[in-house]
C-alpha cells in the first residue's frame, strides 16, 4: 500500500450548482475570522433577536433543520452583513486596525485593547452598538475596559 502514490481528487468535486430560484438569494457575509471576531459583539448586539430566533428554530428541529430554518438563516446573515457593512462605512480605519492586530496576535482579544477601545468608541458613537459581555460580574470593571491587561505581551497595544 505504501508504494501507492496518494491521489486527492476532493478539490475537483466541489459542486457549483447555485440554489434554485424558488429560494430567495442572500449574499454571504464573506468576511474572514479576524474581522468577524472583531465585530462579533456588535453583531451580537444588533442581531440578538434574529440569532435567538434561528437557534430556537434549530433546537426545535433537533439540531438539523437545514431546510426548515432557511428563512431565519437568511435573516441572520442579512443582519450580520448589515453590521459589517455599517462598521465598514463608519469606522473603517479603526475596524481595520483592530482586526489586523487580532490577525497578528493570534486572535487574542486582550492583546489589542488599544485598537478595540477606538473601535468600540467609534461604533458606539455612530451605530449605537455597545460591547457588553453577558454574565460578567457586576461589581468589577468588564475585562475589555480595564486599563491594565495583565496578560498582554505588548505595552504598545495595551
Amino acid at each position: 500500500m505504501a508504494a501507492r502514490a496518494a491521489r486527492f481528487n476532493q478539490q475537483v468535486l466541489i459542486d457549483t450548482t447555485p440554489l434554485p430560484d424558488s429560494i430567495p438569494k442572500v449574499k454571504e457575509i464573506g468576511a474572514t475570522s479576524a474581522p468577524l471576531l472583531s465585530a462579533a459583539f456588535f453583531i451580537g448586539a444588533r442581531c440578538k433577536p434574529y440569532n435567538d430566533d434561528y437557534m430556537m428554530c434549530k433546537t426545535e428541529a433537533n439540531g438539523r433543520g437545514e431546510l426548515e430554518c432557511m428563512k431565519e438563516g437568511r435573516r441572520v446573515t442579512r443582519c450580520a452583513a448589515s453590521v459589517i457593512a455599517d462598521v465598514n462605512t463608519h469606522c473603517l480605519s479603526e475596524f481595520r486596525k483592530h482586526w489586523m492586530c487580532l490577525e497578528n496576535w493570534n486572535q487574542q482579544l486582550w492583546q489589542c485593547r488599544r485598537f478595540e477601545r477606538d473601535l468600540n468608541k467609534c461604533v458606539f458613537e455612530n451605530l449605537k452598538l455597545e460591547k457588553v459581555i453577558p454574565g460578567a460580574p457586576a461589581d468589577e470593571i468588564p475585562v475589555h475596559l480595564r486599563k491594565r491587561q495583565i496578560y498582554a505581551h505588548s505595552y504598545a497595544n495595551m
Partner: peptide, 17 residues
Amino acid sequence: MWSRIHLIPALQAEEDR
C-alpha cells in the same frame, strides 16, 4: 465564549444554506 456565541448563528446559517 460570547464572541463565538454571537457568531455561531451566522456561520451555521451559511453552512446550512
